[in-house]
Simulated assay, not measured.
Amino acid sequence: MDMQNMGSNVESVESADTSQYVVFTLGEEEYALDIHRVVEIVTPTAITRVPKAPNYIKGVINLRGEIIPVMGLRERFNLPLIEQTEDTRIIIFKVDEASIGGIVDSVAEVISLSKEAIEGLSNFSNDLSMDFIYGVGKIEQRIITLLNIDKLVSSAKNEG
């Protein structure tokens, strides 16, 4: 670790010890995805249902000619459903070479977290839902759940 630069270059967008995350909300909770995985953030558009899909797969959208499956993250995390609002967004992210959308209540901001600000979840339970989470980010008085999007999507594929 380069101790000389620590703290002196707060303006830097990203360094070896810092990563950027897109923060979004589901209810009162804040979650984050690695910004490198996020392709774009769009307002909800017409979603075409897919027969026999699991309940959290809302369907597919046509985004500039690309057909993208959309997952309801509230359903995926077994949270109560709510009506969409003007803040509702679909975050399009890449898993392998595929684009997948996730419906979130709102997108809050982009944050930078140092490795020291991220705590793993090894102390928590073996609950299957914890499998989607690789840690929590601590920033000021907030705790933001960091999602492992690969595991979230691969577990959805395995269930479906």
Results as ranks from 00 to 15, higher is better:
K58Y: 05
N62C: 10
I67N: 05
I68P: 09
K58I: 09
G65T: 12
Q84M: 14
V50A: 07
F93H: 02
I90F: 01
R49M: 14
I90G: 00
I57A: 01
M71Y: 06
L63D: 09
P80Y: 08
G65Y: 11
P69W: 05
I82A: 15
P54M: 04
T88E: 00
R74H: 04
E83R: 03
E75I: 00
I90A: 05
P80S: 04
I82M: 13
L73G: 03
R74Q: 13
N78D: 10
N55L: 11
N62W: 04
N55E: 15
R76Y: 03
G72F: 02
K58A: 15
V95C: 02
T48F: 02
G72L: 04
I68L: 02
E97R: 14
S99I: 03
P80W: 03
G102K: 01
V60I: 15
E83Q: 13
T85Y: 04
F77L: 08
N62I: 05
A53W: 10
N55Y: 12
K94F: 03
T48K: 06
T85H: 00
R76A: 10
L79F: 01
E97Y: 12
G101C: 07
N55I: 13
K58S: 15
L63K: 09
L63G: 04
D96K: 10
E86L: 00
E66K: 11
S99C: 08
F77W: 10
E97W: 04
I90L: 02
D96P: 01
A98V: 08
N78E: 10
R74S: 06
L73I: 14
G102D: 02
I92P: 12
R74E: 14
D96F: 09
V50I: 06
E83N: 04
V50K: 12
R89Q: 01
E75D: 14
V95N: 06
V60C: 11
I82R: 15
R64W: 09
A53E: 12
I68C: 09
